[in-house]
């Protein structure tokens, strides 16, 4: 059985990849996927610890996160479709109407 540090390292790598994707990529879909990546990195960390501590709490959290992520995907994709319809683009840098 692999020690928990491996899982955590993988989760951190995934999270950092997701974060960098959010910060660097301009395609809304890619940004969206990067967010999913960060959520799943967190899920992985939860699950790894739940196994390590022989506790169910982490796993319950994962279910919640997966539920929230599903809802988020639904709303997020709807938003992206709407934005695409009005702007004919899904470049997040184009969406700056809230500029002060």
């Amino acid at each position: 059985m692999l020690p928990v540090q491996y899982y955590l390292a993988l989760a951190i790598i995934l999270f950092i990849l997701g974060a960098l994707g959010v910060l660097i990529r301009r395609n809304a879909i890619v940004v969206f996927m990067s967010i999913e990546l960060m959520l799943n990195a967190a899920n992985l960390a939860f699950v790894a610890y739940a196994r390590y501590w022989q506790s169910m709490h982490g796993q319950i959290f994962v279910f919640f996160i997966m539920t929230v992520a599903a809802a988020e995907v639904a709303i997020g994709l709807a938003l992206i479709v709407t934005i695409f319809r009005t702007k004919a683009s899904i470049d997040v840098d184009q969406i700056s109407t809230l500029k002060g």
Binding site: A19, V22, L23, I24, R26, V92, D93, I95, S96, T97, L98, K99, G100
Partner: peptide
């Protein structure tokens, strides 16, 4: 001065959050 922080670019916000 403050309003310049509100750039409207969501990646900036995300960066600040990080």
């Amino acid at each position: 001065q403050m309003r310049k922080i509100q750039s409207g670019f969501f990646r900036n916000y995300a960066l600040s959050v990080f």
